[in-house]
């Protein structure tokens, strides 16, 4: 599922314009904990994930724990897609 990360990387750098050089954005770069992504950018990211990957966030899921790094976001998206299929 490398393409999720590639898409995400492109969105974070080019749409959200996070204050990072491309080489600084690693799979485990802590976006929220290291204050690279503020709360409004997080909300825009949620909106983007919902549209792009056809998932829906529950209110309590909009948290740093689910959005903190490319690895974490990818895992969360995968898990949402699996549970959507199972439902």
């Amino acid at each position: 599922m490398a393409h999720i990360k590639a898409q995400l990387r492109d969105y974070l750098l080019n749409e959200l314009n996070l204050p990072l050089q491309p080489e600084e954005l690693q799979d485990d770069t802590m976006l929220v904990s290291d204050r690279i992504m503020d709360s409004i950018s997080s909300l825009m990211l949620v909106e983007y994930l919902e549209k792009t990957f056809n998932i829906s966030f529950e209110p309590h899921e909009v948290t740093a724990e689910n959005l903190d790094s490319l690895n974490i976001i990818e895992a969360f998206v995968n898990q949402k897609q699996v549970s959507a299929k199972a439902a």
């Binding site: 709360s39 949620v46 209110p59 309590h60 909009v62 948290t63």
Partner: peptide
Amino acid sequence: SESKNPLLLS
């Protein structure tokens, strides 16, 4: 953190 989450507030 709840106060920054409009979906939760809603």
